[in-house]
Amino acid sequence: MSSLDGTERDLLRQMVRQVLLEVVPQTMAAASASASASDESVVLTNDAELEAFVRRVAVLCEDPAEREALRSGSRRFRLAGHPAPSTSAPAPAAAVVRVDKGAVTERHVREAAAAGADLVLGRGAVLTPLARDRARAAGVRITKEK
Rank of each mutant, 00 (worst) to 15 (best):
L12H: 11
I142Y: 05
A103T: 05
L70S: 11
Q14M: 09
M28L: 15
V57D: 03
A35T: 08
M15Y: 08
E145W: 06
R141T: 08
R136T: 04
S74W: 04
E40N: 10
L50S: 12
V97Y: 00
S32G: 08
V42A: 04
L119C: 02
T143L: 10
R76W: 08
R110P: 00
A131L: 08
G122T: 09
A37C: 03
A137M: 07
S34L: 09
A93P: 11
P64R: 04
R67D: 09
A131I: 07
A135R: 11
V120P: 00
A117Q: 01
T27W: 03
I142D: 05
E111A: 14
P25T: 08
V120L: 11
V109L: 02
L119P: 01
E68D: 13
E66N: 14
V42E: 04
V104L: 11
E8G: 05
A137L: 12
R56F: 06
Q26F: 01
L4F: 15
S32Q: 13
L12M: 11
L70W: 04
A80S: 14
E51C: 03
A89F: 08
R136L: 10
D63S: 14
R110A: 12
A69N: 13
A31C: 04
L119R: 02
A95T: 02
V104Y: 02
R56D: 08
V54E: 10
D10V: 05
A125K: 07
D10G: 15
V23A: 12
R17N: 13
V99I: 14
V57G: 03
R71V: 11
V24I: 14
R132A: 15
R67Y: 05
G122S: 11
V42Y: 07
R141E: 10
P129M: 03
G139N: 10
L11H: 10
A114E: 15
G122K: 08
A31V: 06
A95S: 09
E106C: 01
L44G: 02
A95Y: 01
G81K: 05
P129S: 09
R123D: 09
D100P: 00
A30I: 03
K146R: 12
L4V: 05
T143W: 05
A114Q: 15
V16M: 12
K144W: 11
G73N: 07
A131F: 05
L121T: 07
R123T: 12
G81E: 06
N46S: 08
V97S: 06
K101A: 15
R134A: 15
D5H: 13
V99M: 02
C61Y: 06
V120G: 00
P85Q: 09
A37V: 00
A89P: 06
E51A: 05
E111H: 12
R9H: 07
T87Y: 03
L121Y: 11
G6A: 15
G139A: 10
Q26L: 13
E51T: 14
R76T: 15
G73I: 04
G73Y: 02
R123W: 01
T105W: 09
R132E: 13
A91T: 11
V23G: 00
G122M: 08
G81V: 06
L121M: 15
